[in-house]
């Protein structure tokens, strides 16, 4: 693509009226869908994402387990949600029988300042969550 047409496109994209944003209630509903109705308890899972982000286009995010996890607890799933993006879902990770350390890292887009939620599901069916409020100074170009 020629540079000029790219700049025009990027500009046009930036000038559009804001797309709909997810709402905290939507994330709560998704968490309840994971837990089967109960609110996820706090603890056992640790979400690491910077609290202050300059560029929301690629934000490093790591989910791991805390020190309060019993030794025999087996992690099966991690769900990540973001309540300020156009859609609240970010990713769903599944840990199989050959998984090693229960930990995953990726990079995500954050459209605006918002709360990021990670829910960990264990083999016994229990669900635990962690949340981080992220301040984004330059949003991801999502709309």
């Amino acid at each position: 693509m020629r540079r000029r047409s790219f700049v025009v496109m990027a500009g046009a994209a930036a000038m559009l009226p804001g797309a709909a944003r997810a709402k905290p209630e939507e994330v709560e509903a998704l968490v309840r869908a994971v837990t089967g109705g109960a609110p996820a308890r706090r603890g056992r899972v640790r979400l690491e994402v910077p609290e202050l982000v300059e560029n929301g286009n690629a934000v490093g995010l790591t989910v791991s387990l805390g020190e309060d996890v019993p030794e025999d607890a087996v992690l099966t799933d991690i769900h990540v949600f973001a309540d300020g993006n156009p859609r609240p879902g970010v990713a769903h990770f599944r840990f199989g029988r050959l998984a090693g350390v229960p930990k995953v890292a990726t990079r995500v887009r954050l459209a605006t300042s918002q709360t990021v939620t990670a829910v960990a599901v264990f083999a016994d069916g229990s669900c635990w969550q962690d949340q981080v409020g992220v301040l984004v100074t330059w949003s991801a170009c999502l709309d």
Binding site: N57, A58, V59, A82, N85, P86, R87, G89, V90, A91, H92, F93, R94, F95, G96, R97, L98, A99, V104, T106, R107, V108, R109, L110, L142
Partner: peptide
Amino acid sequence: EEVFAARLEPAVA
């Protein structure tokens, strides 16, 4: 045998 799987949404960079 499964090690790891992911369902990704547009929010992944």
